[in-house]
């Protein structure tokens, strides 16, 4: 159903070469990070998940900029379904980030850069945390893209501020009184996923599931609002 739209969007994006800076940043970071071994499995996944969060936000921003506003209007008219267009755009960005996730997870496993053999649970948790944080990166970016009404300077500034605040979520929460702690819930739950992977053994099964699912729920809410608002624009 989305195949033709996705092929067009990805081809258009790839021909713009805007993917090169985030892709190379990602690959160089992975290369440097695993230059020494052995590395702890979950701790390493925590770092590369955070990297996926940042790089997906970057890819999302450049993807949104890759189609000219005029061509976007032409595509929307041909498609006759604005929701399909914006959902297609989001799927295309997820597909790009999945490629990065596969690289970041297979490279250390194939290269034997971990301190112990990687099990099914590690792969499952690692995959969900990478994907969840990638969704979060995409969700916060769509709200700051130029198409959504912001100037590029405000958009990039806004994305960076939210990324930084989301990493400091734990510290911010500790400074706030319990009555005001809910304020941090507005921020993307990046910190909690990162914390889960860094201290994986200290969490119970239910907590692990909850923390792995939380980024998807948060992203789903934000992305649904985005598609609905863009439809009405």
């Amino acid at each position: 159903m989305y195949k033709d739209l996705l092929i067009y969007l990805l081809r258009n994006y790839n021909r713009s070469y805007r993917f090169i800076p985030p892709l190379f940043t990602y690959l160089i970071f992975i290369g440097i990070f695993y230059a020494y071994k052995p590395n702890p499995v979950m701790g390493s996944f925590a770092v590369t998940s955070v990297l996926s969060f940042i790089v997906t936000a970057w890819i999302c921003y450049s993807f949104m900029q890759s189609e000219s506003p005029v061509q976007e209007e032409i595509t929307l008219l041909h498609l006759r379904n604005p929701a399909k267009y914006y959902i297609g755009l989001l799927i295309a960005i997820v597909l790009m980030s999945i490629i990065l996730i596969i690289v970041s997870m297979t490279y250390p496993i194939v290269g034997d850069y971990f301190d112990r053999p990687v099990g099914i649970e590690d792969i499952f948790v690692g995959l969900l945390s990478h994907l969840g944080l990638s969704f979060l990166g995409m969700a916060i970016t769509v709200f700051f893209t130029g198409r959504f009404g912001s100037k590029p300077s405000i958009a990039i500034g806004g994305i960076l501020v939210v990324i930084i605040l989301s990493f400091c979520q734990g510290s911010i929460a500790s400074y706030l009184s319990p009555a005001l702690e809910w304020i941090t819930w507005i921020l993307p739950p990046t910190f909690y996923t990162m914390n889960l992977l860094m201290n994986y053994d200290t969490y119970s099964g239910d907590e692990i599931i909850g923390l792995l699912v939380a980024p998807f729920i948060y992203s789903l809410i934000i992305l649904t609002i985005y598609v609905q608002l863009m439809k009405r624009k």
Binding site: L5, Y8, R15, S68, L79
Partner: peptide
């Protein structure tokens, strides 16, 4: 816009999308 697609690629894409 000055797209980086060829005419053939572009028109076929727009046709498929329709």
């Amino acid at each position: 816009p000055k797209l980086r697609l060829t005419t053939q690629e572009y028109l076929l894409s727009m046709g498929k999308i329709q």
